[in-house]
Write a protein that binds this DNA or RNA. Sequence first.
DNA 1: CGACACATTGACCAGACTCAAAGCTAGTGG
DNA 2: CCACTAGCTTTGAGTCTGGTCAATGTGTCG
Lengths: 247, 247
Amino acid sequence: MPSAPNQHATAMLIRKLESIATLSDEQRQAILSLPVRLHTLAARQDIVRDGDKPSHCCLILDGWAYRYKLLGDGRRQIFSFHIPGDVPDLQSLHVPTMDHSLATLTKATVAFIPHESLQDLTLRHPGLGTLFWRDTLIDAAIFRAWMVGLGRRSAFEQVAHLFCELYLKLQAVGLAVHYRCPLPLTQIDIADALGMTNVHVNRVLKEMRGQALITLRSQTLVIEAWDELLRVAEFDPTYLHLEHRAA
Amino acid sequence: MPSAPNQHATAMLIRKLESIATLSDEQRQAILSLPVRLHTLAARQDIVRDGDKPSHCCLILDGWAYRYKLLGDGRRQIFSFHIPGDVPDLQSLHVPTMDHSLATLTKATVAFIPHESLQDLTLRHPGLGTLFWRDTLIDAAIFRAWMVGLGRRSAFEQVAHLFCELYLKLQAVGLAVHYRCPLPLTQIDIADALGMTNVHVNRVLKEMRGQALITLRSQTLVIEAWDELLRVAEFDPTYLHLEHRAA
DNA sequence: CGACACATTGACCAGACTCAAAGCTAGTGG
DNA sequence: CCACTAGCTTTGAGTCTGGTCAATGTGTCG
């Protein structure tokens, strides 16, 4: 029988899945019964590395994580930021070899779920299989949104777009309200996500503060002018495919 | 009973799936029985548009397609190029609203397969469901590879990387041999895929010819120095997750 | 044959990068 | 509890990759 920490962990997963779909009682029960192994990790620690062949997936319960790839000379590209409820390496369920790394951004609590259990779950509950698939498809949709930024947006537009996206993702799982949210990213992280240098990110942020669009202090982002931020980012939340929209 | 054109269409899908996994006879039979509707399309025609809610997926039988998104002022980001055997809008099966467009690049023959039939297929054959899921995960892996290029590679490295990728994808389904392959892209297409201008793409190509890395004439790419191209691109084919590797 | 889209080249420009030097700030250990 | 430190932020000065604008050449298709 699942223990209390198990229930806490899987309840977090349920909350996340309910941000992108509706679950039946039976499905909720099945998820609650998943076996998990809890771990507490320090900040900036690799969870899974480029080249690994993991045998379990990682559910984030507390803290942030990110996925990235390093080039030979140290250049880094960040692909995504992840918050509680996310399973950032869900793709490892069906693509055995990692082509990038997953690491914590902050101190974090994570739950490891064996591939075997997830595979079993999706076979017994095809609806959940579809839903996990859907989650990886939304992951891909976010990659495409970032590609538009990397390829075709100005630095200013791109930073604005990232802030809109992160705020909505946090809001969808109850981690943000009143245009205020945690943002435990350094300017170096933002730079490596958006294909810029930290120096340039700093200048863009200065400009955004100057235009009274945002406040960003001590790991907290406050969006001072949501509508205006949406406008300059040309932000359309469709790609997040959130069930309970809030934009 | 499926007609001959149906068999041709679904056989193309089988060849593609076998480039990323192994199929059982039963699975092959199930795919061969899929109902399809054939269409011939002119070059540069939208197949599905940003915002649509399609009720079928599109299997490419002949010709090339690409996915893209337009920004308000006409800036375009291309996300992917697709070749025969690909189902570029497979994600529409579980994410109803398109967040980008799909269009032909050349004159093309495509087969439309009802979502209903695909959903039914994946329920009856969970192994195929997993395989289609896997295909969308590889799609996402390719997005990540492009993100590294867009964010962190020089223009030269990026073009080299794209050519390596396209050659291997074509080779995997038997459409390229001897470092020679079709490449029906304009320099504008390449620019919009890699986040550059067509002028700069032209200069990069000139430089690549100068270094005797490639020849590119009349829609045909010849890679004159494969090893050297791999090296400058820092290309690692792992992310394509091909079953029968050929790098 | 003519038109139109694409490729190529040159001249000039700018957004973003590099390098460098100070300030901050949040942990750490004494 | 505070001083130290390492990493992060901020700013300035100068540079460069890649963009803009524009003209001309080339190829392909009706």
